[in-house]
Amino acid sequence: MAAAKSETSSGLDRYNRISTGMNLLFHLIFILLALVCIVPIVVILSISFSSEDSIRETGYHLLPTMFSVEAYGFILKQGTVILRAFGVSVLVTVLGTVIGVLLTASMGYVLAQPNYKLKNFLTWVVFIPMVFNGGLVSSYYINANLLGLKDTVWALILPLAVSSFNVIICKTFFRTTIPDGIVESAEIDGASQLRIFFSIIMPISLPVLATIGLFLCFGYWNDWFQSMLYINDQDLYSLQALLNNLMSNVDALARNASTMGISYASLVATMPKETARMAVAILIVVPVAFAYPFFQRYFIAGLTVGSIKG
């Protein structure tokens, strides 16, 4: 974003700068703030690479006092609980993003058709939930009891799949960037609307689909609330739900001990706990921390799109 400005900068820019002292002060403030913002990564890394004994004796540190990889060794050898949770997280993220993008884009496309007879009705269907919702209690009972989503992977996927805001972003994109001629000529050629949507609209709409897909992707990966509401079966815990559970009961990591031919008690006694817990946090944070700088541009596009709507 800063680069965009330098393109338009003129020679005047040289005379129109803050003083060197001011510049230094600003840099200092930003360095401090940036460090505060990446402190979580430092803390999580440090604890996960510490030896369990050093934490038991001297507590947590910003930098490990005794370096050790025992937490990661434990995950590789005995961490079936963790690896399973990783699998659930990946499954929910992938499936949720695909379903969410399809549901969002199809509705956005339909609402972008000026001559569609039910357009007004569906616009209300999308709009009303933006201002009014049934609240947590009735949503909970409907999802858990009426729809039977409790303790299924769908409870983690379906409730988060669509947001009216995303639908409107999509609609605006289709309305403003896709020429009417494309749809009309395909209609004249006899293509059905389904065909037009899947083989013409979807492929040329990648920018908006990528933006919405990314929002969904990070949303699913970071979600723990749905698990807290609907998942009691520990086999369906995602990484977030597992970490949430470990914060109050770290022994849960030894749940599958019997399947590995070790007794539960001996595994609890010998396994690294504090460090393994933070290693779970690493599994959550590292993909995010590596991915977001590359996708930042799409996020910014999505976050600033609010002002342009049709």
Binding site: L102, V110, V125, P129, G134, V162
Partner: peptide, 17 residues
């Protein structure tokens, strides 16, 4: 084309209302 999303809205937004 709009049907799946409409069903989603009915189940997850309007029923709770």
């Amino acid at each position: 084309l709009a049907l799946p999303t409409t069903v989603w809205y009915i189940l997850f937004c309007f029923l709770p209302m």
